[in-house]
Simulated scan of single mutants.
Amino acid sequence: MDLTEQINQLEADLLELGSLLEKSERKRVQDLLKQEQKKVEKELSVKQQQKEQQAKRQADPSAASKAAYTVKITNYAWDQSEKFVKIYLTLKDVHKIPTENVEVNFTERSFSVLVKDLDGKNHQMTILNLLYPIEEKDSFKKLKTDMVLVMCKKQTSKKWDCLTTVEKQSKEKDKPSVDEKSDPSDGLMSMLKKIYEDGDDEMKRTINKAWSESQEKKIRGEDMMDV
């Protein structure tokens, strides 16, 4: 169904809702009809805006290529269920542009998003090296108010600790290594040494004072044992 037909159907729905509202006598029924009326009016407004944009593009075929520039989408959030990994991209008014202006392509270990002609710009995002493989054919997009939701269908129902293998490698690299055979005090001394080297004069005086007091207590303890 094209935009013109969708608009015609919504306008017909509004007329019928108005007719039912005039005939209804129960307040609860009237309230329900008014709620539905507002929903249809909002949907109709969005479709009319889409049709206006479509008419502009048809009048000027080069309009789609006149987006000032392409910007990268760098901010996103992600979540997961047993079957899907969900990526949330917040883009103001994205629900007002034609659905075909939002392209999402999937491979087994990646996906890319291209939003065309939104606020005079194209918006692009590519995620490579997904942590686990996904089902390309069963993955899809959803357009919500000010948001693109990318649904990646998991091949296996396992929990993802992160979105990509790059993130996983980064986490493993930053994770401090532990040598089970090493003396725990060696790690403490290394940490104190780093704090001392990186600290300001006040920090160095504090560490020196604490070290001196510790040594004095150790010496006093040894003297007591000799007695």
Rank of each mutant, 00 (worst) to 15 (best):
Q54H: 12
W160C: 03
E108Y: 05
V227L: 12
E36S: 02
M151L: 10
Q35N: 09
E100R: 14
K121L: 14
D2Q: 04
T4W: 04
D79N: 13
A67Q: 09
K42M: 11
S45N: 01
K51L: 15
K217H: 08
L14E: 03
K86T: 14
T4L: 15
Q48V: 12
F140H: 07
E222G: 07
V46M: 03
D226S: 15
S62I: 15
K168N: 06
R220K: 15
F106C: 07
L10M: 08
K175V: 01
L91F: 13
D161P: 01
E25M: 14
V113R: 01
D201E: 15
I97D: 06
K66I: 08
S19K: 12
L143T: 12
Q53F: 04
V178K: 00
D186K: 01
G18I: 02
V148I: 14
D60K: 10
F84N: 04
E202N: 12
K175I: 01
K92H: 13
K137Y: 05
E197G: 00
L10I: 04
K42H: 15
Y88F: 09
Q9P: 00
C162N: 03
D79V: 10
V150G: 02
D138H: 02
Q80I: 04
A55M: 04
L32D: 14
L163F: 01
E180C: 03
D79S: 14
L20N: 05
S81E: 11
R26D: 15
K171H: 04
Q50K: 13
D201N: 10
D2S: 03
I127N: 03
T145P: 12
L149F: 03
N208W: 01
N75A: 10
C162G: 01
R220H: 13
Q169K: 02
A67C: 06
L32H: 05
K137F: 07
A210H: 10
D31Q: 04
M1A: 15
E43G: 11
E180P: 05
F106S: 08
D93C: 09
E136W: 02
V148E: 10
K39N: 14
P133G: 04
Y69P: 03
E11T: 04
A12C: 06
L15Y: 14
I127W: 01
D146H: 09
N101A: 14
D226N: 15
T164I: 00
M225R: 15
K159Q: 11
S190N: 10
L91E: 12
K144S: 08
S212C: 08
G18F: 01
S110H: 11
P61I: 09
K92S: 14
V178F: 12
S110E: 10
I134F: 00
